[in-house]
Design a protein around this nucleic acid. Sequence first.
DNA 1: CGGCGGATTGACGAGGCTCAAAGTATGTGG
DNA 2: CCACATACTTTGAGCCTCGTCAATCCGCCG
Lengths: 233, 233
Amino acid sequence: MERVPIQSGCEECPVRDDAICSVLEDGDRRHLARIGIHRDFERGQTVFAAGDESIACATLISGALKLSRCDAEGVERIVALVHPAGFLGELFANTREFDVTALTKSRLCLVPRKDFEAMLAERPALTQALLRRTLDSLGESRALIDLVGRRDARARVAGLLLALARSAASEPCGQASSFELPLTRGEMANLLGLTIETVSRQVSKLVADQIIGRSGSRGITVRDARALEDMTG
Amino acid sequence: MERVPIQSGCEECPVRDDAICSVLEDGDRRHLARIGIHRDFERGQTVFAAGDESIACATLISGALKLSRCDAEGVERIVALVHPAGFLGELFANTREFDVTALTKSRLCLVPRKDFEAMLAERPALTQALLRRTLDSLGESRALIDLVGRRDARARVAGLLLALARSAASEPCGQASSFELPLTRGEMANLLGLTIETVSRQVSKLVADQIIGRSGSRGITVRDARALEDMTG
DNA sequence: CGGCGGATTGACGAGGCTCAAAGTATGTGG
DNA sequence: CCACATACTTTGAGCCTCGTCAATCCGCCG
């Protein structure tokens, strides 16, 4: 569990133009770079645990994370995915609400919460950026409600594959034609409100219909993006 | 469609301590009171329409609203409900993303968007309050994902009834034992990702099981709140 | 090689959707 | 005041999708 100081004042950061710190002036950025650290996580590692005290905020630099919660019976419930440039942190509560787990090898930029909150108080632009990001999350969350509440299994899987293809794209607004799933079938099922078997069957059916291709159990090739989009409405 | 100026600088406002303007100092409040107006809507009236230019923000003073969107086939999809003290407004986009419709007789406090944004830029506390409210919406939205994605029909209906009982409560954190549903069966079904028939059957079953009582098709009495809570996990 | 976690595939049953009909509330016009 | 229309709700019957249970398969690692 290495803690690496942030080198070179963020100049090399791959998400420097997308993450919420992009709204800061260079001076403020340098300040954050001095107090922040980088840290790497392997697939499956817990980044934050629900119930823990919230002492740090973070921006995801690379990789992918899941946000989940366990219900009364101890069953995991994934409520959102986090992609690079995404922000993590409880802002007005002292304890964390969700478990945050790495889905792939991931790198985070961690900043002590109190320092971040201090900067929020002084820099309205930062608060606005955070608000904007939260509004985006809200939009995503509502899109997920749509997917999960109204679509059949085939459309749910199609919608998730599209979303993952988009987030795997190199440019914003594009979509990768070929990518590795960061989620197991079980995690896909969990997120979509389906079972492992149903997800597996739908993926197989999409392959049979020539809409996607498979390489290994995690590799996906989008053959007919149009068909996928049509399914999700 | 009357437009009523805000009288008496908000002193009488029933949501003055809960709405986002509660974080403002009296001077700023008076300023908003001068430029804002009150407006009443009847059940079914459109408050804002998706695609319209966003020229006003609003706080719901009384009543209830639904946020919905239509998919490609023109089918309505309710994504959230808005209760008194709730905030409405696209902040970084120029067009509205959702249809907003009154579910009951409702009163709103409307403020021109540009004035509101100007105040946001000057008053970090206001931005923070809005951020906090947005985070709450995000939490609600994730709770809805949980309800819709993982629970069976009975639990979904139970969860919605509980949520409505809470929002009908006079004190915060309490729940009304008897209230009027602001939603038709069709709207409940839409929100929960079920059909009208299934909702109707589940409500009938809850009545048969002595868990709730009915007075007319919209009146609900909670007889066994514990049982409802147990169902939703 | 065997063991293990994850993925696939099949058979079966149940829960919820579809289709259909009838019941209830509310309003409108004669 | 009643007849009628309209909108919403309730209830029933049958079917289909998806969940459950179970067996097998694949890739990976010791």
